[in-house]
Computed example of a mutant assay.
Amino acid sequence: MAGLAHYVFFTLHDSSPEAIDALVNDCNHYLDGHDGCTSFLVGRRTPDLLRPVNDQTFHVSLQVTYESREAHDVYQTHPRHLEFIEKNKPTWAQVRVFDSNL
C-alpha cells in the first residue's frame, strides 16, 4: 500500500516570534510520534526567500508522511491530534492542508 503525505500551512492571527514558537512547540508535542508516521517535520517560514513563487502567507509549516492512508486516518481522530486542534484553533487565521498519495 502506498503512503500518504500530509502538509499543513498555518497562518496565525499573532505573527510574533513567541506565537510562532508556541505553535511549533505544540506541533512537536502533540503531533509527532503517532503510529504509522514515517517522517515528521515542522518549521517556520523562511522570511528571506522572496522569489515570486514563494508563498509568504503562512507562518508555520507541518509535513508528515504516513506509511498508509489508514495510518493517516487513525491520526486524524487520535485524542492528541484533537487536543492540538482544540488548543490551537483560536490562534489560526487560516489553515491550508494538502494531502497526496505517495
Rank of each mutant, 00 (worst) to 15 (best):
D55L: 01
E86P: 11
K89L: 11
A19M: 07
A2Q: 09
V53D: 08
R96G: 13
T46P: 02
A93L: 11
I85N: 00
D99Y: 01
A71G: 12
Q94G: 10
D48E: 15
N88Q: 10
H13Q: 15
F58Y: 13
D35W: 12
G3D: 14
G3C: 15
S100C: 12
H29T: 01
A93M: 15
L23Q: 05
N25G: 01
T65C: 04
D32C: 01
C37K: 03
F98S: 04
V95E: 15
V60H: 01
F10M: 11
Q56N: 06
A2M: 04
H78Y: 10
F58H: 13
D35E: 15
I85K: 03
E18M: 08
V97S: 07
K89Q: 12
P17C: 06
P52T: 04
S15R: 04
A5R: 09
Y30F: 06
T11L: 15
S68P: 09
T57F: 02
T11I: 08
L4P: 12
N28R: 06
H78F: 10
R45H: 10
F98H: 08
R44E: 09
Y75S: 00
A19T: 05
T38K: 05
R69P: 07
E86M: 13
D26G: 12
Y30V: 00
P79K: 05
N28S: 08
S100G: 11
E18W: 11
T11F: 07
V53C: 02
V42C: 02
H72I: 03
A5L: 05
E86Q: 09
Q63H: 07
E86D: 14
L31E: 04
V24I: 13
L49E: 05
S68F: 08
L41R: 15
A19E: 07
L23K: 02
A19D: 13
L102K: 10
P52M: 12
P79Y: 04
V74Q: 03
T46F: 12
W92C: 00
